[in-house]
Design a protein around this nucleic acid. Structure first.
Length: 516
RNA sequence: GGCAGGGUAGCUCAGCUGGUUAGAGCACGGCACUCAUAAUGCCGGGGUCGCGGGUUCGAGUCCCGCCCCUGCUACCA
């Protein structure tokens, strides 16, 4: 069984989860579930990035210590992920003892294999006491930090460990040029090639004043021990998550796929591969940079986030409906918009009216005309188009052209529409009026149930719970998520005993304009 | 400023190497049907294809110029 180690970015523990976080996790979950259904030994890992000055500051502002604060945030994230139905196998936290020793082991390994890659250098910049951080020229307005316009910036110089990233420019260019799949989608790849053309600068590996951090394992020549800077703490989570450097970590490493947001592409395709190369470790197969969710046409912001609360979105029609709408609306290779209006439209049109009602009418007819038992009838030519769409579904989800999760749902939607058209064209309720049409009716009913069965299997990665309910309604054996999705042409449906339950996707209760 | 991508029906988008009356879904209007969650199906209205030139028998599709939008242009992550 081929292994498939998939990770998402670890989220920064500086606030609560929002819809932006959710898009990435849901997308990765769909990929993980699809891979399991197509015969892969999947390990799906998500987690939290818990160190850094901001976390320490936020904790202090709330009157708690950093560890207690991150414990709380991590619990909130995990609660949310559980509510969303994520199927991750592991939740890594960078404040755990194993991650810390793993980071230190990686740094030591680089220092042993390439002693020149770490060197001491002084870093000089304008330091904002209010932010407790160095400020870049773009952050400075009229000589002040934008967040603290009354505090003078200090010209500070400190000695740090640096990583000789510049040395890997040619290596990275060759890597990216020779492996077009390493960074996808291609728009992001082009941006990185542009960045490499500018030449790379070395990056900090440690920082003074970084108390809430993994201690950098190499002391400075002054004897001082500094905190490990973000890249060398956060990125290695993908590796330490395998158990590195202990045990059989190399049975899982390298990862097949890192799913990340487009804003952190550079770190994942420049710094991370360079670190691994410096350590003499294998590189991940692919980094996929998804786009962002816009809220109501606006860029994600705190106020927009409040306007569209994640838990409210999940609670409205359930986690599965939210997962569906989000991935249908937001192309996974770019940006998309999310609003309550679109949510209502998509839910009502795609899920309640088209899919939910299709299941409802088909099951009702099998109950009414065949006492609930799906008749035996072989597939007919009129199902052939569905298999064209099923091929498109696989092409969207197997990674061969990127991870186009929205296209997978579009292929499913076409099959749903076709099944409704088919029902209308065949008019089984008319066939039922004349016993002479018994076989014709059998064919139509069996076809409808088969179509629904295939839909349940295809939807299982996206809507695991609802797909499972649909599968059960059809009286199909086992679980929808366990059916190998490459074997859909063998689904017959014959003899299944259907049970009409409550609507799969209830219509929203219409607002009565005369009320109130 | 530089590099990259984009501006097509009310909304979200398809339109490959130029070729008959520019498409889909949603929304909107009409009709049909009654198995179904007042659902479904069919038909229809609706677009100066950002603006201005040019090449061509013919351009949304190629060339030039302009306007507008988005992303990247590295130590918050």
């Amino acid at each position: 069984m081929p292994r498939f180690y998939i990770t998402t970015a670890i989220d920064y523990a500086n606030g609560d989860p929002h819809i932006g976080h959710a898009l990435e996790k849901i997308g990765a979950d769909v990929i993980a579930r699809y891979k399991r259904a197509t015969g892969h030994d999947v390990h799906f890992m998500i987690g939290m990035d818990e160190h850094g000055q901001k976390v320490a500051q936020t904790a202090a502002a709330q009157g708690t210590d950093a560890q207690a604060f991150t414990d709380l945030i991590a619990a909130r994230f995990q609660e949310t992920w559980s509510k969303l139905g994520l199927s991750h196998d592991q939740f890594i936290r960078t404040t755990t003892p194993h991650h810390k020793t793993g980071v230190q082991a990686l740094i030591r390994r680089i220092a042993e294999r390439n002693p020149d890659d770490f060197y001491e250098r002084s870093y000089r910049g304008l330091y904002c006491v209010g932010c407790e951080a160095f400020k870049q020229p773009t952050d400075i307005v009229d000589g002040f930090c934008q967040l603290h316009p009354t505090r003078a910036l200090e010209d500070v110089e400190e000695r740090n460990w640096f990583f000789r990233l510049s040395r890997y420019t040619d290596f990275l260019r060759a890597l990216i040029t020779d492996n077009p799949h390493f960074i996808q989608p291609s728009s992001r790849r082009n941006e990185i090639l542009g960045l490499l053309d500018q030449g790379l600068e070395d990056v900090s590996a440690s920082r003074a004043r970084l108390a809430w951090a993994v201690p950098f394992p190499l002391p400075l020549s002054t004897g001082e021990t500094q905190g490990t800077y973000v890249w060398f703490d956060a990125l290695p989570n993908y590796l330490t998550g395998t158990g590195f450097p202990d045990g059989d970590w190399d049975s899982r490493w390298p990862a097949q796929l890192h799913v990340i947001g487009k804003d952190i592409t550079r770190f994942h395709v420049v710094i991370w591969p360079a670190m691994l190369q410096a350590a003499g470790l294998p590189l991940p197969d692919q980094v996929w940079a998804h786009g962002f969710v816009q809220l109501g046409g606006e860029r994600f912001s705190k106020s927009a986030g409040v306007k569209l609360d994640l838990h409210e979105a999940i609670d409205r029609y359930g986690a599965d409906a939210f997962r569906y709408v989000l991935l249908r609306e937001v192309p996974f290779d770019g940006d998309g918009n999310f609003s309550w209006e679109r949510f209502e439209e998509r839910y009502t049109s795609d899920l309640a009216n088209s899919l939910g009602n299709l299941a409802s009418r088909a099951v009702a007819m099998v109950e009414k005309y065949r006492a609930g038992v799906v008749p035996e009838a072989p597939p007919a030519d009129d199902e052939n188009d569905d298999f064209t769409d099923i091929a498109a579904y696989h092409a969207a989800l197997d990674g061969s052209r990127g991870w186009l999760l929205h296209e997978g749902l579009a292929a499913v939607a076409r099959q749903v529409a076709r099944a409704n058209e088919y029902t209308q064209a065949m008019q089984p309720w008319q066939l039922a009026k004349d016993p002479a049409n018994e076989q014709a009716l059998d064919r139509v009913l069996a076809s409808l149930i088969r179509r629904l069965g295939r839909l349940a299997v295809q939807l299982a990665p996206y809507m695991p719970e609802r797909a499972s309910v649909l599968w059960g309604t059809l009286g199909a054996p086992g679980r929808a998520g366990d059916v190998p999705s490459h074997a859909l042409d063998r689904l017959t449906g014959s003899g299944w005993r259907v049970t009409k339950g409550i609507p799969l996707f209830p219509r929203p209760i219409p607002v009565d304009p005369t009320a109130g």
